[in-house]
């Protein structure tokens, strides 16, 4: 059994907090790129949010985008470079709040890109404000009484929403809150890239992930929060595969 840092990840320490799920998702994306042998023809987009420094960690071409705009930027790149692999890596604020329009329309066009959507139900980088995916009752710095008391609505379920469209070829929700979940997430991420390579069109993997710092939980409690609270609101599974 060999287990190493994937080639696509640089040998640097990330800025993520202890127990943050981003590092796990980074590994899964990098492993998929390695296993498919596509690093030298892959271009990623960096989001605004905790993963804004994404380009410091991935050893492939990266374009850093304005908040919410990666699917549009990726569209421009993919259309001009159809034989390259283009993926976006986005958080919940980026993808499901300020960039909802770009997400829906890239999906609806069946844009042949891969979207890695890290859903941790909170705005991490700015310090724990409500995300579009913050669950009902969840505390955040802008929902001090818990989400839902003052007209904030409820969490947006992106996979369910996008599965109403004809465009996507692959939609799956996974988690990185247990070894078993991580294995399943790895398969999903790889499959999403495979869809793009096969020219099937828009693929998205939503990853339920931990944010112990802004949830004000220990890393162990954060894992439990994903497994017990988030999975109940965001059911795991394949929402589209064709």
């Amino acid at each position: 059994m060999e287990f190493h840092r994937p080639r696509t990840l640089k040998n640097v320490l990330t800025h993520y907090c202890p127990g943050c799920g981003h590092g796990i998702v980074h590994r899964l994306v990098a492993e998929a790129i390695d296993e498919l042998g596509i690093r030298e023809r892959t271009i990623g987009t960096a989001p605004v949010g905790c993963a804004v420094l994404f380009y410091n960690y991935f050893d492939c071409d990266i374009i850093e985008c304005a908040h919410g705009r990666p699917p549009a930027v990726a569209t421009g790149m993919k259309r001009m470079l159809p034989d390259r692999i283009i993926f976006t890596y986005q958080g919940d604020g980026d993808l499901a709040a300020i960039g909802t329009t770009e997400t829906i329309h890239a999906a609806n066009r069946g844009e042949n890109i891969t979207v890695i959507f890290v859903n941790n139900a909170i705005y991490g980088m700015t310090g724990g404000q409500m995300a579009p995916t913050t669950i009902k009752g969840q505390w955040s710095t802008t929902t001090p009484e818990g989400r839902g008391k003052h007209g904030e609505g409820g969490p947006i379920r992106i996979c369910e929403m996008l599965s109403a469209l004809d465009g996507p070829s692959y939609l799956e929700r996974v988690a990185v809150s247990s070894p078993k979940d991580i294995l399943r997430a790895k398969k999903a991420v790889k499959k999403a890239f495979e869809k793009q390579i096969a020219g099937k069109g828009f693929s998205l993997v939503e990853v339920l992930s931990m944010c112990p710092t802004d949830w004000k939980l220990t890393p162990a409690q954060a894992v439990d929060f994903v497994n017990e609270k988030m999975k109940a609101v965001f059911p795991l599974g394949v929402f589209r595969d064709r």
């Binding site: 059994m1 060999e2 640089k10 127990g19 590092g23 050893d59 247990s178 991580i182």
Partner: peptide, 29 residues
């Protein structure tokens, strides 16, 4: 089993093998 390594968000755990073909991905740039 590498379960710890998969769960580690910080690439802090690696497993190496004795076999000569092993070391192909740990070297930095």
């Amino acid at each position: 089993c590498a379960t710890c390594g998969r769960m580690c968000p910080d690439l802090a755990i690696e497993i190496e093998d004795d076999s000569p073909s092993a070391d192909n991905s740990t070297s930095s740039e």
